[in-house]
């Protein structure tokens, strides 16, 4: 059976697992941005915290994903449902690129621009929302882009703990020793990653200040 035949015969399931996959990644990215961007901004104001915070985020990155899914199983509330574990793990992996790029992006705004804004009587909030964030936005989006691409790949492993998504096909194919079934999970996951990369890349380019 070819991959194409598999898709046409299992159209409903392919769609369902793709949507589950997108849902996990989407929720995780939203949470990572809601947490990571403010933390990155906070680090630019409390620079002594840069090393410890980015250090912790870095250490999280080094935990093998399968192990992290396993560690979270006994966690209260989170561990009760596999999708919650999956989303939390994806958030943890996404935090580093989001925090780091927010921090680097704001630090990279031209000193003279910030100084002029302050000297003309902008409040800290006005400076942040009218100057620093708009000028750092493309760098922040670049971090979200990296995080999203990583998450699309990592989310396939979430099927190992029963969280669903395109990893279902991959693990099923492995168990059945059937390459077509493996590809039925791997190919759509790769397409999702490429689309996310392309779309966020366009956004990044559009928002880049000249």
């Amino acid at each position: 059976m070819s991959l194409w035949q598999f898709f046409s015969q299992n159209r409903a399931e392919v769609w369902q697992l793709t949507l589950e996959h997108l849902w996990m990644v989407g929720i995780a990215m939203a949470i990572a941005v809601i947490i990571g961007v403010p933390v990155g901004i906070w680090l630019t104001r409390r620079q002594v915290m840069e090393k410890p915070v980015l250090g912790i985020a870095n250490v999280i990155q080094t935990i093998p994903s399968l192990a992290l899914f396993g560690f979270l199983l006994p966690a209260p509330w989170i561990g009760a449902r596999a999708e919650r574990i999956a989303v939390l793990a994806l958030v943890l992996y996404a935090l580093l690129p989001v925090i780091r790029n927010t921090y680097v992006g704001i630090r990279g705004v031209d000193r003279a621009v910030v100084e002029a804004g302050r000297g003309m009587g902008m409040t800290g909030r006005q400076l942040l929302f009218q100057v620093e964030l708009p000028l750092a936005l493309s760098v922040i989006i670049a971090g979200v882009r990296v995080a999203t691409v990583i998450s699309v790949g990592l989310a396939t492993i979430a099927a190992a703990i029963g969280a669903g998504g395109l990893g279902e096909f991959i693990f099923r194919g492995l168990a059945m020793v059937n390459n077509v079934v493996i590809l039925a999970g791997a190919v759509p996951a790769a397409v999702l990653a490429l689309l996310a990369d392309f779309g966020l890349g366009l956004l990044e380019k559009r928002l880049r200040p000249a």
Binding site: A112, V114, A116, G117, Q130
Partner: peptide
């Protein structure tokens, strides 16, 4: 306030 690097907002 005017400075050497001007500091115009590029956006």
């Amino acid at each position: 306030y005017a400075i050497q690097d001007v500091g115009l907002f590029p956006h």
